[in-house]
Amino acid sequence: MTDRAAAGAGEPRALPRSIAQAFRLAAGELGHCSAAWLFVNETERGGGREALAVLRDELGRTYPVLDAVIASRLEGATGPPVAETLDEVVALCEGASHVVIVGIEARFMDALVPRLSARVHLLTQSVLSPDWDRVASNYPGRLDLIGLQDFQRYAGSRSVLVTYAYGTSPSSTYVVPAWLRAAGNHGRTQFRALIGWGALARPFGVYPRWLVETSHDSFTHLVTA
């Protein structure tokens, strides 16, 4: 269901009529997974598991990460797998002078950025058009914004590329489209490590719109819980 269709229904509703638009904005600036957990927690607090089912019904097809997170929640998960994987990602970044992050996941970045001694850069590519300055303002003095035209300036033997991996299966996983541009054949040889950080272990139940499939060997390290 599109934002417009979700907004247009007229009968009494368990969910606010602006919820699709609100999720899109949140997913753009917090990341699909972080926004999904925020919506899941607030919706469940307000309307219990029934409201979660309605949320999944209304937005699940448009936002597949949200669909998978609701499924995880209904099976007892309590949050994204940040704590379980953080140390490994930090260890992989150790000794690097530049860490370039592709894609936004607020809960993961909030945990990672303070632990890094390297300069951290965020690639400003997203189909959801976030307010990049607002995103960066949450990491005062710790995060630079860089465009695709600039990111190779930070390549080198002491540089690391990091992105988030969703819906990982034994052979492939899904990433934000910008990853394919940043970590293409020429980019792969220019960084010490290309890290996929598992934000969502569960395979997708619906078509993974907003994301693109990539094989495990597009990373030098795939860190999952």
Partner: peptide
């Protein structure tokens, strides 16, 4: 909640 999150560490 979303607005608070958008400015969470600002």
């Amino acid at each position: 909640r979303i607005m608070e999150q958008l400015y969470r560490n600002t």
